[in-house]
Each structure stands twice: as C-alpha cells, then as structure tokens.
Amino acid sequence: MKYLLTTLLFFSHLIGQVTLDIKVLPKGTTVILDGKEIGNAPIKGYSVKPGLHEVRLEADGYAPATHEISVQDAKRLVADFILNPMYKIKFRAQEKGLTFELNGEHTWRDEKIKLNLEAGPHRLRVYYLDELFDDQIIIADRNAEFIYTRYQPEPGSN
C-alpha cells in the first residue's frame, strides 16, 4: 500500500510536467528558479509544471536579471538569456561645483569618480546650485573614461 501510494504520487507529480532548458550568456551563470538555486547555466532537462515561474540569473561582471516566465503546457521549453555586462567607467567632470544624478537615483558631487554601469543608456542630469544645468543620455558600451562636458547644441540647430 505504501509503495502504491509512493508510485501514485510519483506519477501524479510527473503528469503535466514541462522539460525546461535554460541557456544563458555568459555560461556558468547561477540560475535561481522560484527562489531555489537549480544550478549553473546551461540547465538541461529540468521539470516544471505549467504556470508562472520566476527565473533569477546572477553572474560576476553582469547585471543580475529577474524574469517571470509563463510556462505553457508543452513538451519542452528552451529559454535563452543574454545578460547585460557591467562596465567600469571612470567619470571626470571638467567643471567644478556640479551635482550629478544618474537614472534619477544615484547622486554624487565628486569631479572624479569610478562607476560600475550596466551596459546601455543611462540618463545623466547635472545640477548647479540645485538648478538643473544639463540633461543628457550617456551610453555605457565598454570600459572607458567619460569626461563630462556640458551638452551644447550645434550652432544653427534649434
């Protein structure tokens, strides 16, 4: 009876399972599914039930990512992820007394500072005496030095 129940539980668990493969760039990314670490990418042949699942991906030098997947009832789901790299940016301002704000939440007043930026566009706002002085989009696409110069429209352009 005990074995029968165990067998029934085993088979009822298998019914409706979808085989999940997770591939991530970079390889070796830590994969956390619904709060439980299930290994390092690539993950192959992990069984999940259809429905909503949360995948969190963590790798050194890359921005961690959390993604909700609505798993449909299928034989297999192959999920490919490409994580955004982080870049080391050396930031330098050529003017003094400015306050810098990045993405509306990170603020500093140093003329020189080392930043760890996720690849992609960031909104830089510059204040002088609490007045908005400049507003521009900067793009992090490699490890580099960023020398801040105030945005000045080209002559003749509106």
Binding site: K75, R76, L77, V78, A79, D80, N116, H122
Partner: peptide, 28 residues
C-alpha cells in the same frame, strides 16, 4: 593613474533593462 585616488561609487548602476530573452516551445 589620475583615478588612483578617485572614490568609487558604492552601488552598481543598472539600467533596469530586461535581459535579451527568447523562449522556444517544443510541442508534440
């Protein structure tokens, strides 16, 4: 080495941009 003594911003700064993802279903 002009940044040797420059401070380092404490937190990494994210774009809140979703990673590139593709989902491929295999149906029987």
């Amino acid at each position: 080495c002009g940044y040797m003594f420059a401070p380092k911003y404490s937190d990494p700064i994210y774009t809140q941009r979703a990673p590139l993802i593709s989902l491929r279903y295999e149906y029987q």
